[in-house]
């Protein structure tokens, strides 16, 4: 059987900026309280148009689980590693807190966790996925902005979305080949 390639596809047109995903992530993963300690975020993009014809988009995001992985490449101890499914994780016991991965990440997706005494970031909620559940952010969203699934399964929701809608990725010029896709 072909191994899985996990990804998240986002339809940000639906996003209400309710930030339920950010709260769910904090609770699910015991992310410490603090201005700089967060795994996911919802950015309010600049207003478009001129009054009274105004429009604003929101852009939820997190670690892109890059296939060409800048953080993993510079990690001296293999604390940052990739699972066979392409999920980028940190082994907290091996992290020396050199913070090279933080300076290497083009998406500012990592932070120092005093709780783990290591660098942490989005894990695609692998502890839930291994139990057949969805990541907390995906499950919580009231309008289902995110879909999580296997790109190698043509019938998965992520595959079907990507085969039916145009999409973009963040910072393609960095050649990181993200596993997060934004349908347009």
């Amino acid at each position: 059987m072909e191994k899985k390639r996990y990804a998240i596809v986002l339809d940000t047109k639906k996003c209400l900026n309710c930030k339920a995903c950010t709260v769910a992530c904090k609770f699910e993963n015991y992310v410490p309280v603090g201005d700089d300690t967060y795994r996911i975020w919802v950015t309010e993009l600049p207003l478009q148009g001129k009054f009274p014809h105004l429009h604003q988009d929101f852009q939820p995001s997190q670690c892109q689980h890059c296939e060409n992985t800048p953080c993993e490449k510079v990690c001296p101890t293999k604390a940052t590693f990739k699972t066979p499914e392409g999920v980028v994780l940190v082994d907290y016991e091996k992290c020396i807190l050199c913070k090279a991965c933080m300076t290497a990440c083009p998406y500012d997706a990592r932070f120092v966790s005093e709780h783990h005494e290591a660098v942490e970031k989005c894990t695609f909620c692998m502890h839930r996925v291994s139990e057949g559940r969805e990541p907390a952010c995906v499950e919580t969203c009231p309008v289902r902005v995110r879909e999580f699934g296997d790109l190698n399964d043509p019938n998965s929701r992520v595959s079907r979305l990507l085969s039916s809608r145009p999409y973009m990725q963040l910072k393609p010029e960095k050649n990181t080949r993200p596993r997060l896709f934004y349908v347009l």
Binding site: C75, T77, C95, C98, A100, A118
Partner: peptide, 18 residues
């Protein structure tokens, strides 16, 4: 954050392309 970890992980788990 963990200088002593570095010393033994450089031997036990070095990532030579880093």
């Amino acid at each position: 954050g963990h200088p002593f970890r570095l010393m033994y992980l450089l031997i036990l788990s070095p990532h030579f392309s880093a």
